[in-house]
Design a protein around this nucleic acid. Sequence first.
DNA 1: CTGAAAGCGCTAACAT
DNA 2: ATGTTAGCGCTTTCAG
Lengths: 364, 364
Amino acid sequence: MEGLPIYLQNYRCLLTVTIYDIAREAKVGIGTVSRVFNNHPNVKPKTREKILSVAKRLNYHPHAYAQGLARRRTNTIAAIIPFFTNYFFVEILQGIQDKITNLGYDLILYGINHPREIDEYLRKSDQRGRVDGILFFSSKLPESFVERSHVDSKPLILVDAFHERFDSLHVDNFKGAIAATNHLIQLGHTNIGMINANLNNTPARERKDGFADALKAGGIELRPQNIVETNVIKNDGYTREAGYSSMKQLLNLGTDRPTAVFIASDVQAIGALSALRQAGLRAPEDVAIVAYDDIELAAHFGLTTMRQPMYRMGELAVEKLFQRMENPAMPPSHVHFVPTLIVRGSCGMNKNYSLAEEFLQTSD
Amino acid sequence: MEGLPIYLQNYRCLLTVTIYDIAREAKVGIGTVSRVFNNHPNVKPKTREKILSVAKRLNYHPHAYAQGLARRRTNTIAAIIPFFTNYFFVEILQGIQDKITNLGYDLILYGINHPREIDEYLRKSDQRGRVDGILFFSSKLPESFVERSHVDSKPLILVDAFHERFDSLHVDNFKGAIAATNHLIQLGHTNIGMINANLNNTPARERKDGFADALKAGGIELRPQNIVETNVIKNDGYTREAGYSSMKQLLNLGTDRPTAVFIASDVQAIGALSALRQAGLRAPEDVAIVAYDDIELAAHFGLTTMRQPMYRMGELAVEKLFQRMENPAMPPSHVHFVPTLIVRGSCGMNKNYSLAEEFLQTSD
DNA sequence: CTGAAAGCGCTAACAT
DNA sequence: ATGTTAGCGCTTTCAG
């Protein structure tokens, strides 16, 4: 406290040290002070030192908003994320955070709990001087927004979503499904089924296409009765219950039933496992399974599944956003990630797994 | 586009409408424009209307940072959260978000992936003009920060953490453990055990105390061999592996083994369940279990467990922060939440559960 | 009820 | 190398 100049000592309650204060103390102009903090080369080492020491003594910290206003840059980006994409988004957030922290940026998080909030958050992020760029996740960009946006609009990257006019980043469901199915084929299966979600869901359609393609490429017959879709609305059919009844349906095929099944999501797979167990059957012995998503539960259940590079997606989303901020005129780019196969117990390849004790042997 | 004034039509690329623009168009002073947007009463309805219409035509939006600078308020708060508290924090975040959105505030998220980031994020949030208040989660507040903070420092609320000099919000582990144990007692058990985490962990100690207290109050003998602690370092012993071996240890007691066990966390309980199964035993028939946390997995495993009101905690954290911002001189307050018992299958009370099919019958 | 003017704290162009 | 000055876009007295 005794380091404070006299004229400030009584003002502790509204203590807010500005460059003027430190300029006066250091007997220099505010320009020089500013230069020091902006690492401008043209400052004599001596004065720089002086200024730094005064700043430290007064415990000076630049005022973020004042800087932002003068620089016309907020050093902040917004992420608009549906909160229910839970599994997904924590890791993506980590990727984002690590990346932007390095770049000296902050993150404003707008979590969507209800669709109506999409517009609101989009409007807020689009407000002048709020953020420098926007990351928009897993939702459909409102048409009203698309319409009023133009080349000079605020940079926006779509993640896990698509629109031709905006940069986007998304996971290739088609290729993911192919990889999953191929794995089953390579394991020697020839009677392969698929449990899908609701076809209203874009990823569900893409996964189905990949499945069909892989079978074709592998010269394996696609039996229509082997594909079970769902008309469940809730969560587009990505639920345990849907998986449970779908597997039952497959089991009803009797001896004709598939010996391997590609399931469109881990949650469904968990339901399916349960149907299996109820029927006195086991995975992978009776039915081999490859699922999709690699949610945390997947490891606990020993599910072989397709994993999406979420952390990396977060990082890349930020990279693309910065590219766009630097070069607004660039044509939109679209990158597709390919999920990777995580082999655990449910496909029958990894002999170290026994599903009975699955969760003890899982170590990731 | 044809709504734009002539002098702006060529400037679309740097189009940034300010109150000066709309003042000029509406033939009023900027003061009046400002008043309109701040809902100042003293504006003639006629001119207000005029201004609003011009603003709309020019698609005016206030500049957040300029407002912030002039108002000395950012309308933003920071949340510093360890990312690994995964289960926990998504829900808390929802509570926070819902609350602050109503209040017109934004949220800057600082996710800690490494302890060293704590200081960095704390410093950033403490920077002038960055945020109006801070929510600090589940970590120890660095001493250096505590020291340099004083009455006039930026408002900060501790969540799931404690320091006498700051407002805090945390879950009462002692009471939670009592509730869990009581439930077992009420179910008629008299030989009750506890599987705890590492006693280095504060919540672990508190939970142990609650357990002992409940037994005492219930007139039930506390057999020392019934309490198994762990010296596992990783995650302070909150791991499946630790739970697994702890249960084994309990099972080694033979016929003297407890008929019911309070387990300090859901993850440990899952390991314990597995030990049980391996020994050919079942929960709740052979050993009844009440766990702690109610992580998402808990439902899947049919665990009866203690749930913390996370969403509510998020809301309350924000409420307290705003109280503190309004009244900085108020003495620090500390609120304790009491977790609630979620009855599922593992305690033996809910007959609708069979642990074999646990995850199908869970509906929350 | 409204206009003019003085900041808010900083950056950056312009002098020197 | 450094001081001066004019903004950045808004809020808020202070006059009238």
